[in-house]
Design a binder for these strands. Structure first.
Lengths: 198, 198
DNA sequence: ACCTGAACACCGTTCAAGT
DNA sequence: ACCTGAACACCGTTCAAGT
């Protein structure tokens, strides 16, 4: 499990390398993640990473996969399907705003065909599809293919966070809305549209 | 005007540097934009850029500002406000999918306090706000602060494009929807919700 | 005012060698 | 199996100097 690396007292070199990379990423962005500094933080030489990862990109992919896997455990128990969906989306928003660098890394473009990363991504969305389907059943979301409606709400949460992080969301006046506000706006509009079918 | 640099036969060194940077960005991503290669493409030495830009980031900011300025001229004349809004959003999607690297650069996080870039960004959104207001007037969009509704539709278009570019949009099955599909889905849902107020 | 060429400190990656 | 240290080719940036 990915979270193991935070709990155990003895961490493997590989885990220490991944943790060091994530810390450097948080502190100084992608430019701060140099293999030399990663090695220093992990207590090994600057090219020890090459014994665990093919190259720097594969190390970063391991960081991203860990983030996706952790995202998974955030599920809660609500009686109300609408509240479940809202909690999932707002959890996504909160995570992205709190760890912007990990968010940008995780949802960036990957040339690495890492299976670990792809699997983590699809299984992360599966939970969201389930919540969308349940919300459709109680008619707080419009009809239609659940995967497609999931893509809609995920795209909005993702875009809202990205715009807020890059400062492209109006911060002033009464038009002000942060990413969490926009998620609520969308859910409200979708609930209002629910009975009209297409 | 920013597009001048494409039309004139005699281009200043500054313009040639910006064009060279944009071309390298398209071809090989941010990593391919080295000042040495930029200089070579522009026919100057590898540190001539420092006479026109404070550093590499300011050169990239000039590329981004040029993209935003060009985005501006895409306005069309439609009788139908809904068609105007849709054309603006789909134009944004088309541009982003065609020039993914410029899109990522332009909407990335800027530490540079470049006024040129900030002004271009706000004036680009002003056109969108106008289209949203017109669509609200003919009741194809819900009521509410136009800037906030603009943020909603922009966030969706932005997020849908970003997810499609990073391969996080389901490509298979009947749940398949690309970024343009999601824009249409949102506009349809918002039109259906129009009469319910909040 | 604009440009050049050498130089500096840094980086990712490779390789021979060690245990 | 895992790690080290030297080395290579590259990068952004600075600086003294040229016109």
């Amino acid at each position: 499990l990915s979270t193991w690396r935070y709990r155990s007292g003895v961490a493997s070199t590989r885990d220490r390398l991944v943790n060091a990379a994530a810390e450097l990423l948080d502190q100084g962005g992608p430019a701060a993640v140099t293999l030399r500094e990663v090695g220093r933080l992990a207590g090994v030489s600057h090219n020890a990473p090459y014994k665990h990862f093919a190259d720097k990109e594969e190390l970063l992919a391991a960081v991203a996969a860990g983030e996706l896997a952790q995202q998974q455990g955030e599920r809660r128990r609500h009686a109300d399907p609408a509240a479940v969906l809202r909690a999932l989306l707002l959890g996504y928003v909160r995570w992205a705003l709190r760890y912007p660098q990990r968010f940008k890394l995780t949802f960036g473009t990957w040339t690495t065909g890492s299976d670990e990363l792809a699997d983590a991504a699809t299984s992360a969305r599966t939970a969201l599809v389930g919540a969308v389907r349940a919300a459709q059943d109680v008619r707080v979301l419009p009809r239609g293919d659940p995967e497609r409606v999931t893509a809609l709400v995920l795209a909005l949460a993702h875009g809202a966070v990205d715009l807020e992080l890059s400062g492209h969301l109006a911060k002033t006046g009464k038009g002000h809305a942060d990413a969490a506000d926009l998620v609520d706006d969308l859910l409200r509009h979708l609930a209002a549209a629910r009975r009209r079918g297409a």
